[in-house]
Simulated scan of single mutants.
Amino acid sequence: MTVTAGGAILLAPTAQAETTSESTVTTVKAETTAKTSKKVTAAQRRAAKVARQQAKARKAVAVAKNQIGDPYRYGATGPGSFDCSGLVQFAWKRAGVKLPRVASSQFARIRNKISWRQLKPGDLMFFNGLGHVGMYVGKGKMIHSPRTGERVRIDKLGGWRRSSFVGAVRPGM
């Protein structure tokens, strides 16, 4: 720091040292706070992403449930009639998530794979070597469009379903 007094320049090195150390402490505190807030922000972003996915899943389940009673028709994507993959594609589309058309592509292209124990409402469940898909609705049940001559319905996930289970995915992440 320099001070002028009557035309003479005076240097104050001790004042400069104090200012430098104070600014260093302030800078270190600011950097630490910034790092901490970035971590909190990342956690908040993850929590918000999960919340958005859950809201979409609730919407997809509600849309699928509104289709109960609609007839199965091979290749149908609704409204009014569905095949298995058409039903889940239709429900998730109404929730704002685009899915591939057929069950095998739905399983292959959705990255977030889920185990039987991790199932949450809205997850897609695949059976029979990816030949059939249904949507988990909670409490050990799924909604699906089973086969020709049947209608969209909710079924319990019993032993046969578990034995033919291939995997599950969580859309909307």
Rank of each mutant, 00 (worst) to 15 (best):
A47P: 02
T41W: 08
K49F: 07
D70V: 10
K39Q: 10
K39A: 13
A30S: 14
K35S: 05
Q53C: 06
R52L: 12
Q53A: 12
Q53E: 08
A60H: 03
A43G: 13
A57G: 10
Y72M: 04
G75C: 09
Y74D: 15
R58T: 08
A30F: 11
A43T: 13
T33I: 11
P71K: 08
P71R: 10
Y74P: 15
A51P: 00
A34Q: 10
R58G: 04
T33V: 10
T33S: 13
A30C: 12
Q54A: 06
G75Y: 07
R46L: 00
T41I: 07
A34Y: 05
R46Q: 01
I68D: 01
A62W: 01
K35G: 02
V63L: 03
T36W: 12
R46N: 01
K59C: 02
N66G: 15
T33Q: 11
V61A: 07
A62E: 13
A62N: 08
G69T: 04
D70T: 14
R46E: 00
A48E: 11
I68Q: 05
V50F: 05
A34P: 05
A55P: 01
A60I: 02
Q54E: 08
A51H: 09
K35H: 02
N66W: 11
K35E: 03
Q53N: 11
R46D: 00
Q54T: 04
R73S: 13
T33E: 12
K49G: 07
A34E: 10
A51W: 08
Q53S: 10
V50R: 06
A51E: 05
T36R: 15
I68R: 04
A76R: 04
A55C: 09
V63Y: 01
N66S: 15
A47K: 12
V63C: 02
G69L: 11
P71M: 05
K56Q: 11
K49W: 07
A60Y: 01
A60R: 00
Y74H: 15
T33P: 03
A51L: 06
R46V: 00
K65F: 13
K39F: 08
N66E: 14
R73E: 10
A47Q: 08
T36S: 15
P71A: 09
Q67I: 01
Q53V: 05
R58K: 14
K59Y: 05
S37C: 02
I68M: 05
D70W: 08
G69Q: 08
